[in-house]
C-alpha cells in the first residue's frame, strides 16, 4: 500500500524536477588554486556577505554633493590634507599632501629601515604609518582623508597605523587603477 503511494509520488517528482548536477567542478592539474597559498592582500572583508544590513544600519556613509563643504575639525572636507598610500606586494609608500597636492611628507617602508622582503609586510606598513602620523602631528596636521592605491599586505595595516599614530581619518578612498580595456600587460609569471 505504502509502496504504491510512493510509486505514484515518484513519477511526478521525477518528471517535474530535473536531475541534479552532483559532480563538483573538477580542478584540473594547472588550475588548482588551492596549491598556491592565498597571500594577504589587505582586503579583509572582501567576502563579507551581509553588506545590505551594514548599509541599512548606518547613515551618511557615502559622500554626497554637500559633503565637500562639510566641516571636519573646522576645515571643509575639500580642503583637508590627503594621505596617499601606494601599496604594492613589495613596499608601501606614504605621501602626505595638502588639498592641492603639494607633498608635505613622504615616507616608505624602505626609508623606515625595513629592507628587502621585510618592506612588503603589514608590520612594516603599520610602523611606517605610525611614524608618519607622528611627524604629521608635529607639523600640525591632525585630520586627513586617506587615498589607498593598489593591493598588498600593507593595505589595511597602513590605514590602521595612521589612526594608531594619532591622526584623525575622515574618509577612506580607493584609487586603485583598474581598466577594462588595458594595454597588454606583462607576460605571466612562471611558477
Amino acid at each position: 500500500m505504502l509502496c504504491a503511494i510512493r510509486n505514484s509520488l515518484r513519477a511526478p517528482l521525477a518528471s517535474v524536477g530535473r536531475l541534479f548536477h552532483t559532480t563538483p567542478a573538477q580542478a584540473t592539474e594547472k588550475f588548482d588554486h588551492k596549491r598556491i597559498p592565498q597571500d594577504d592582500e589587505g582586503v579583509q572583508g572582501e567576502k563579507l556577505v551581509d553588506l545590505d544590513s551594514v548599509l541599512k544600519a548606518k547613515q551618511n556613509l557615502f559622500p554626497t554633493l554637500e559633503s565637500d563643504d562639510l566641516l571636519f575639525d573646522g576645515t571643509p572636507y575639500k580642503h583637508l590634507p590627503v594621505c596617499n598610500i601606494r601599496v604594492s606586494h613589495n613596499n608601501t609608500i606614504f605621501t602626505l599632501t595638502d588639498a592641492a597636492g603639494v607633498v608635505k611628507l613622504l615616507k616608505s617602508c624602505g626609508v623606515e629601515g625595513f629592507k628587502n622582503t621585510k618592506k612588503g609586510t603589514n608590520i612594516a606598513a603599520q610602523t611606517t604609518a605610525i611614524s608618519l602620523a607622528m611627524k604629521a602631528i608635529d607639523r600640525g596636521i591632525k585630520t586627513v582623508r586617506v587615498k589607498v592605491r593598489g593591493l598588498g599586505p600593507g593595505r589595511l595595516a597602513a590605514v590602521k597605523g595612521l589612526q594608531m599614530g594619532g591622526l584623525d581619518i575622515v574618509s577612506v578612498t580607493d584609487t586603485t587603477r583598474v581598466s577594462w580595456n588595458p594595454p597588454r600587460p606583462r607576460k605571466a609569471r612562471r611558477l
Partner: peptide, 13 residues
C-alpha cells in the same frame, strides 16, 4: 573623493 569613498564613522577605520 566622491567615487569609491567611505566616510569613517565613530573613528572605526
Amino acid at each position: 573623493f566622491i567615487a569609491r569613498t567611505v566616510f569613517v564613522q565613530n573613528n572605526n577605520v
